[in-house]
Amino acid sequence: MFFKPKLARLPDEELMQKIHQGSEAAFTELYTRYSTSLLRYFTRMLWNNRAMAEDFLHDLFLKIIHNPQQFDVNRKFSTWAYSVAHNMCKNEYRKKQNQRLDGIDIKHSRDLDRELDLSSANEKLTMLLETLEEDDKTVFLLRYEEELSITQISQIVFMPEGTVKSRLFYMRKQLAVELSEFKVVLKEKSI
């Protein structure tokens, strides 16, 4: 569009101020900007459970409706929104952790590898992502899928930037090793 509507040109932080003043149009604009990426984040984090992810997204936007004053206007909105989302997921993981301690086993990638007959690198990647710890998964997804900056990620997960970088590096390294080994196995199988 040559002429963009006024709200579409406003930064997220100003939209939040307008939401605080009761502007429904600003809320719709902010929802349009972030609903897909946040839903994607929730879906990946919550074991691809779409219904649960939609509930989490709904709850997050309810927080924006009812407590817009919680947002610090000096911060970046995306950082704040993802840190709220991260905390929501963390609580859910804690709940699951308690359930696991009650009897469900934690399965590692290699155990799963034996159980599942994986036929592609894609399936292997899905499985590898599922086995990542909650914080690592968040860091990984925010960096490589949502393409946030290292600074933003460190603010979201409350980690120093150096720690975020080292975690990303070692995750990438593990992924590279596991995928290359898996590809060798696949090649051998096909022969």
């Binding site: 609903s35 897909t36 839903l39 994607r40 879906t43 990946r44 779409r50 992810a53 939609e54 997204l57 690198a121 894609n122 990647l125 899905t126 490589y144 899928e145």
Partner: peptide, 11 residues
């Protein structure tokens, strides 16, 4: 490729 092939549709 994995991210591309496993999209999550909007709400």
């Amino acid at each position: 490729g994995w991210f591309r092939e496993n999209p999550v549709n909007g709400a």
